[in-house]
């Protein structure tokens, strides 16, 4: 980072914090606008919001303004402190996820050596927030939603982590930049022009990661915790206004972050053939665009599934995780390990 070298630590930190504070809501807005408003609408042969701005592009502004104006309601018997803290915890987890995702050779808030480990660890914090929300709402629906969410998120954390292990073994690096580099420098049977996106070797891992992501985001077919036709909205049922917006931001921000993680680990991240791995202006300008395109492609698949499938029952999705996903991911690790040793 040529620019950052001239700045003091606190200045760098301030820039990074500011950048993330800007990026997360923007990313969420893009995800919600593209997929939740427009793609979902067209899949259901509707048009979606059309009035605010050209083709409804400013709808989120209106929605945001609406949420901000709304009164923050809390049930009389709610645990007020936990109740107000819960959305913040969920949001925090989303914000922290963005810290390690590299968008270019020099564009990363903090290139941790244990990048992917950190990402998966902080993504689990949201479980706490969900559980807190479910418990503190003093509402039976919320409580059931919270408990379901906790059970589900813990069950699907395992395949999520195990799916990543294959990638880590193949890359030989835990840092996300290292994984991108490994993919860029890889070769397909001596043909190195497009590198080796790990989706080619880790297709099982990629599928497992997407499925587990779907569950982490509590989206159909794994949206039992928020199942609107039975638990109304699960743990979010008592939230209103800005606090609800936090959950919303948390959910869709996480959707973006997980898509970006998947794009980074399986699709080569910000790198495309022709970019300089070591830095340089071109890579730092093109990188984010490439990453964004790949992220949107992954997010498209995630939301496509979301809008198509019915949901599994809680016990069915648990047995799906424990009986199929986890053994499969273990097999994946085994095979990857074997190949790593052989070649």
């Amino acid at each position: 980072m040529t620019l950052a070298l001239e700045l003091a630590y606190w200045q760098q930190l301030a820039i990074k914090v500011l950048a993330i504070l800007v990026i997360v809501p923007t990313a969420t807005a893009i995800i919600v606008q593209t997929f939740l408003f427009k793609m979902m609408a067209h899949m259901q042969s509707r048009l979606g919001p059309m009035e605010a701005g050209p083709h409804g592009t400013l709808q989120l502004m209106a929605d945001g303004a609406k949420f901000v104006q709304k009164e923050l309601l809390a049930p009389a018997r709610a645990d007020r402190r936990v109740f107000t803290l819960a959305p913040v915890v969920v949001l925090l987890s989303t914000f922290l996820l963005f810290v390690v995702i590299p968008a270019g050779p020099g564009i990363v808030a903090e290139n941790l050596d244990l990048g992917i480990f950190f990402a998966l660890a902080v993504s689990s914090i949201s479980v706490l927030g969900v559980l807190m929300a479910g418990w503190a709402s003093a509402n039976k629906y919320a409580l059931m939603g919270g408990l379901r969410a906790a059970g589900q998120l813990i069950a699907y954390e395992l395949p999520l982590v195990l799916a990543v292990v294959g990638v880590v073994i193949q890359a030989g690096d835990l840092s996300l930049q290292g994984i991108v580099r490994a993919q860029a420098e890889g070769e397909i049977f001596g043909f190195g022009l497009i590198g080796l996106p790990f989706v080619l070797t880790q297709f099982l891992g990629f599928a497992l990661f997407l499925i587990a992501t779907q569950a982490e985001l509590t989206q159909p077919p794994f949206d039992m915790p928020v199942a609107e036709s039975e638990l109304v909205a699960g743990f979010q049922v008592e939230y209103s206004g800005l606090q609800f917006l936090y959950f919303y931001l948390g959910e869709f921000g996480a959707a973006f972050a997980f898509s970006a993680l998947a794009a980074t680990m399986f699709l080569g991240g910000w790198w495309v053939p022709g970019l300089d791995l070591e830095g340089g202006l071109l890579a730092n300008v093109v990188g984010p665009v490439v990453l964004f395109a790949k992220t949107m492609a992954v997010a498209f698949v995630i939301f496509w599934i979301r809008f198509t499938y019915p949901r599994l029952r809680e016990d069915q999705l648990q047995s799906f995780a424990w009986k199929y996903l986890i053994p499969l991911s273990l097999v994946n690790i085994l095979v990857t390990g074997a190949f790593k040793v052989i070649f």
Partner: peptide, 16 residues
Amino acid sequence: MGVQLGAITAVFYAFR
């Protein structure tokens, strides 16, 4: 029936 089981898209087709 689809929407009760979480497949929201089905009901829009039905209405359509």
